[in-house]
Simulated scan of single mutants.
Amino acid sequence: MFSCACHIGSMDQSSSQIPIRRKTRAALSNASGRFDLAREAVDDGWYAEPEATSVVTEIREEVARSLISYNRSPDLPFDRSINPYRGCEHGCIYCFARPSHAYLGLSPGLDFETRLIARPNAPEVLRKELSARSYKVATLAIGTNTDPYQPCERDFGIMRACLEVLQEFNHPVAIVTKGTLVERDMDILADMATRGLVRVGVSVTTLDPDLSRRMEPRVPAPARRLATIRRLSAAGIPVRIMTSPLVPGLTDHELEALLAAGAEAGADAASWIMLRLPREVSALWQDWLREHEPDRAEKVMARLREMHGGRDYDPRWGQRMRGEGTYATLIAQRFKLACRRLGLSEKSPALRCDLFARPVQAGDQLALF
């Protein structure tokens, strides 16, 4: 359900399927999602320069009726998560969350990174759901679909307000982000860390700033993300460096260097996930490869298919994150050896759930003792 929309700029809907390089955007097309009507680009003669060099971000507000999403995936370390935003302006071309935009009738391509949805009432809904007598506490994950610290969070502040609710309830939370705006909330995170209630994962996919800018155009530079790890760690907040996704034939040679940089910055743990290409992501990724890395395109896709039984992607539990076969095994061994050498843990201690308590709210009956 949408409230009165809050628009920031507007979006050029022309050239929706024609591959065009747009400034600071990763997707080269805006093809229809699987639930949308087909789109066809038409030149009506009005545009003297059909190859627009930029696309402005549009943000709408959504009134959330529920917030906590539950999953039963056996290969995920959490069973619940929340998303303050739909879509992500960071625009990582490889993002496995892109297909989720299709459920909104929007394209997983440019729409995903330019037509965003904010959920300003998320903190109020979260408070209501945590206050329910039937609620059973477990670590809540944030950032597993779209980044809670993407640029629009600076204006909306939804993530910070949600953290304030979790802090009040003493609720454990695991955060994943590429955004340096997480530093703004170090006061809350440091306080929660003293009680074993929080862990932050910072994703660093490459140390090459040029490749990063092309592959994840609106994400802070790799060096800047490493600085964020350093600042969070110095504040006493446990931080994991996430070398994800690892791209075979493109970034895999950086694995040890990424882990070493994370350890030097103060990370105490590490993780990795192989590049995943579910649904519409595969075509978007291959378009990007042909445009930006044409000499490596065949090698990258051959490696991926080798790990997924000849397909671009294998969605089976236990296989989708890492793949299988000789190459996947080699990456896993390299990761394990590097972590052992650098003193990085592959599995972090469980966050505390025993401190969870519903705060007294207006209308509650006070206890006599």
Rank of each mutant, 00 (worst) to 15 (best):
G9N: 05
S15E: 08
P19V: 05
R22H: 12
T24P: 07
R25F: 06
A26Q: 08
N30C: 07
G33E: 01
D36G: 00
A41C: 14
D44F: 00
W46K: 13
Y47M: 13
Y47I: 04
E49I: 09
E58P: 02
I59L: 01
I59T: 11
R60K: 14
R80V: 08
I82M: 06
A97C: 05
A102N: 07
L104S: 02
G109A: 10
L110I: 00
V125C: 03
R127L: 03
Y135H: 06
F156L: 01
A161D: 10
C162A: 07
L163C: 11
V182F: 02
D187T: 03
L189Q: 00
D191W: 02
T194H: 12
D208Y: 04
M215E: 06
V219E: 07
A221P: 01
R224Q: 14
R225V: 02
R225H: 08
I237W: 08
P238W: 05
R240W: 04
M242D: 12
M242K: 05
P245G: 04
L258Y: 08
A260W: 03
A260S: 15
G262W: 06
E264G: 05
A267T: 09
A270L: 05
I273Q: 12
I273S: 08
W285C: 11
R290N: 07
H292Q: 15
D295Q: 15
M307C: 13
G309D: 06
P315W: 05
P315E: 05
W317Q: 10
E324K: 15
T326R: 14
T329L: 04
I331P: 11
R340S: 15
L344S: 04
A350P: 00
L351A: 09
F356S: 09
A357H: 06
R358C: 12
D364C: 02
